[in-house]
Amino acid sequence: MTALGFLYPGHSAEDDYQRIEHLLGSDIRLDVVHTDIGEDAHRVDALLKMGSADRLAAGVEELRLTGAEAVVWACTSGSFVYGWEGAHDQVRALARAAGMPASSTSFAFVHAVRELELRKVAIGATYPADVAELFAEFLTAAGVEVVSFHGAGIVTAAEVGEWGEPELLTLAQESDTPDADALLLPDTALHTASHIASLEKRLTKPVLTANQVTVWEALRLTTRKVNAPSLGTLFTREPLVQA
């Protein structure tokens, strides 16, 4: 049994992790601990507080008791908002507090893009445009070419968590561009686990979603390799990259 730990802010799309655990169909357990979201707002000042070291550290002890072998901060905006260097500092602090390998969803996207050898990506974000632009800047700092980014202007994770397949499909179609090798959907508050394969079929390209890459990143940290086609192209390619 491989136990993977996730620090998830608040409550919105955490049931994606139950769904992914089922789809993995292996001896893998996904343990989710909820962190204090504070003010639910896709706004820079609120996101900085959400991803602060003390809030992340508060959930670490509970994860250790589950026997987790690695931990991922399951929040994209609460990591890339710190910038490339700041996000590294955040993950290092989390690893020290947890006493185990650590990462975040923002870095999960970077590693997944590299794993699939993607050159150009489009971003379909639920966030306001200024926050979506910060994610584009983060990817650019990682050497990823962002050909377009779209912000849907949703301020709260609670609202995003209420989205269903029609809203998800609309976001994907509005955000994709012909010159992008893949579409990235960065919000962990967005339910995507049941729709990745259908999105890829419709767009005819890889689709990377926040909760999908977060789980993949935890597997990467523990060097586990799992083939799960229903979770998209990312889960059909081997070997996993080693960072």
Rank of each mutant, 00 (worst) to 15 (best):
G51K: 02
A58Q: 04
E61V: 14
A46S: 13
V81L: 12
A68D: 10
A97H: 00
R64N: 12
L56V: 15
V60T: 10
V71G: 01
W84C: 06
E69D: 14
R64M: 12
A87H: 04
S52V: 04
R55H: 12
H88A: 14
R55A: 12
V91P: 04
T66A: 03
E69A: 15
A46I: 05
A58I: 05
G86P: 01
L63G: 01
G86R: 01
V81M: 11
W73L: 14
E62C: 09
T66V: 00
C75M: 10
G67R: 03
A93K: 09
L48G: 07
S77G: 14
A95H: 02
E85P: 05
F80N: 08
R92S: 13
R64H: 14
D54M: 06
M50G: 08
G59Y: 00
G83C: 04
L63H: 05
L65A: 15
G78N: 06
L63A: 04
R55C: 09
R96Q: 08
Y82S: 01
D54S: 11
G86I: 00
G59I: 00
M50W: 02
E69S: 15
S77T: 15
R55S: 08
S52G: 07
A68N: 05
F80A: 06
Y82I: 07
G86F: 00
A68F: 02
T66F: 02
H88W: 13
G59L: 04
W73V: 12
A87P: 02
F80V: 13
A98I: 01
L63S: 00
R96W: 05
A74Q: 01
G51W: 00
V72C: 08
E85G: 09
G67A: 09
S79F: 07
W73Q: 13
A98R: 01
A57V: 03
R92N: 14
